[in-house]
Structures are given as structure tokens and as C-alpha cells.
């Protein structure tokens, strides 16, 4: 469905994507994980033909993106993180507008509208102005707009950001249901548990490079979950680097977070003593980080893009 080969994207002197390779098969939900600034949005933007790239090849639906951008866009859909809709239009007016500007066969418009409305359970609020909807309903409308062209491929850019856990779960179930209809999904998120819940395949991106890619099952089997995450106060990268140098298998996640692999009682107490001697306060210790979180932190620690 998607084949990305050696793609390079540069902004002036900054390399946003560095020889990115990725393959997504039909009917798969791919979770694209990475810290802020790692290159997730750039990659999704390129795949949607919104941003140009300097080198490499991209094929979607077996078509070259460079030469078939319009055809690829017609068959896919991008659901941005921000609520890309009109606050002053009603739910139905929003849907009619976004359906009207796309080249959708007139016979399909009604069917697609009904599908988008029913999947997202927007029926009872069709006449309501978008600005009066709750955050969850707005996100549902945002998703519904993305379904109007009945896409084969959907890109979700952190669709649950800022939504309460109950509604988040509801939206995740909706997205998961698209897989049953044979749609392919690229899903970016910061939430590991979301990725674990709905994705079949994961790609972890950091500093513009795909640092790990594969099926979620395989990746989780490879990763041992014996790590502890220590959230600190009054730390700082220099002081943490000094401590990490003294203890084996300690990674600096960021200026206030350490990841301790093989976190048995002896190693943990040693680390706490070192932190105490440096007058660094431990705010929280989390054991049993999910396997994916552990893998993510290990792969993106020390030189995370957003540190």
C-alpha cells in the first residue's frame, strides 16, 4: 500500500527526514511513534503530497507519489490533529461543504455522508453549530470529514490529543473498526497504550530516521519489560550524564527523566543514592513500563529529538 524508499527531506540546513524507509501493507494499522520534532508530521505531510521532498521514492497504491499526487489524494484522507473544520457552520453544513469541494461522484455523496455520520454517531447533532459541540464530538466530526471520500488509506495525526480517556477509547474503537472494512491506517500518537491497543505494525522515528519498524507482536516479544522510569526534579542533563556514567544500563530520556534497565532492588537503590548525593529529588518512579514504552524510551533516549 505504502512504500517509502530512502526519502530525504531538508529544511534549509536541517535534515527533517534522513533516508527514511518504510513499508505498510494493505489493511494494516501502522503506529508512527516518535518524540516531538522527530519527523512524524513531516513524513505524514509528505505522504499526503502536502510537502515536497528532495530525494528518494514514494509509492502509494502502487503509484508514484510524484506523478500521481491527485489520484493518490483522491483515494486517501488526512485527519489533522487540529480540528480542521468551521466553528460557525453546523455539523451538517461542515460535512456538506467538505463533500462538495471534493470530486465525489454525485451518486456516492449521499451514501458517503450517511456512512460518515453513522460511523461517528453524529446523527443527533447534525443541526448543531460545531462551536457548541464537546471536544469529543468535534473530533468525531473531524474524523467524519475525513471519511467523506470513502478513502482506502487514512492518516490520523494524534487524533486523541486533549480528549478525556473515555472518549479517547471510543474514538480508538471507531478507528479500529475501519480496519475491518479493509482500510489501511497510519496513526501517529504520543500514547504508547493507544498504539498497543489498535496497531498491528509500529515504526519508531527519531531525528528523522526510522530507528525500529516491524509488527507490534514481534517488537514486544523482543523487548523485556524490566525497566523503571524515574521522573526527577531539579535535575539537568549534565548532572544526569555524570550519574549515568557511573551505573550500567541507565539512559537519559530527557533533562528530568531517567530510564533504568534491569531495575532490580540493588541497582535501583544504587541509583537513588547517586541521585541523593547530587541533591536531585525523585518525583515519581514507574515500574513495569509497557514493553512498547520501554522500547520507545530505549530507542529514543540519550539523543531524543525534543531534548
Amino acid at each position: 500500500m505504502i512504500r517509502v524508499k530512502n526519502v530525504i527531506k531538508r529544511y534549509d540546513d536541517h535534515t527533517a527526514l534522513d533516508h527514511v524507509n518504510l513499508q505498510v501493507d494493505k489493511g494494516v494499522i501502522l503506529g508512527l511513534l516518535g518524540p516531538n520534532g522527530a519527523g512524524k508530521t513531516t513524513l505524514v505531510s509528505i505522504l499526503n503530497g502536502l510537502t515536497a521532498y528532495q530525494e528518494g521514492e514514494i509509492e502509494v497504491f502502487g503509484l508514484s507519489l510524484m506523478q500521481n499526487r491527485n489520484e493518490i489524494r483522491r483515494r486517501s484522507s488526512f485527519i489533522p490533529q487540529s480540528l480542521a473544520l468551521y466553528d460557525k457552520l453546523s455539523v451538517y453544513e461542515n460535512l456538506r461543504f467538505f463533500a462538495g469541494i471534493q470530486r465525489i461522484d454525485s451518486n456516492d455523496v449521499k451514501r458517503n455522508l450517511e456512512y460518515a455520520i453513522s460511523v461517528n454517531r453524529l446523527g443527533p447533532v447534525l443541526e448543531k453549530t460545531a462551536s457548541t459541540l464537546s471536544g469529543g464530538l468535534k473530533q468525531r466530526l473531524n474524523i467524519a470529514i475525513g471519511l467523506l471520500n470513502d478513502p482506502e488509506l487514512l492518516y490520523f495525526d494524534e487524533p486523541t490529543a486533549g480528549i478525556d480517556p473515555e472518549l479517547r477509547n471510543d474514538i480508538l474503537q471507531t478507528i479500529k473498526s475501519f480496519k475491518k472494512e479493509g482500510k489501511t491506517i497510519v496513526y501517529t500518537s504520543h500514547y504508547m497504550e493507544e498504539i498497543e491497543k489498535i496497531c498491528d505494525q509500529v515504526a519508531i522515528i527519531n531525528h528523522g530516521r526510522i530507528v525500529r519498524e516491524g509488527s507490534l507482536t514481534t517488537l514486544l516479544q523482543e523487548e523485556k519489560s524490566d525497566a523503571a522510569v524515574l521522573e526527577l526534579l531539579h535535575a539537568g542533563k549534565t548532572r544526569l550524564a555524570a550519574i549515568a556514567g557511573k551505573i550500567e544500563d541507565v539512559d537519559i530520556v530527557d533533562g528530568s527523566t531517567l530510564l533504568l534497565h534491569k531495575a532490580d532492588a540493588r541497582r535501583l537503590s544504587t541509583l537513588l543514592v547517586h541521585l541523593e548525593s547530587e541533591t536531585i529529588t525523585v518525583r515519581k518512579i514507574r515500574f513495569g513500563a509497557t514493553n512498547l514504552e520501554s522500547l520507545f524510551l530505549r530507542l529514543t533516549s540519550n539523543h531524543r529529538a525534543d531534548v
Partner: peptide, 11 residues
């Protein structure tokens, strides 16, 4: 609100 980006993605 990225509506323009969305419209751009809609050709």
C-alpha cells in the same frame, strides 16, 4: 485550524 491544509489534501 489547518482547514487549508485539509483542503489542499483534498486536491
Amino acid at each position: 485550524q489547518n482547514t487549508l491544509t485539509r483542503m489542499s489534501a483534498m486536491n
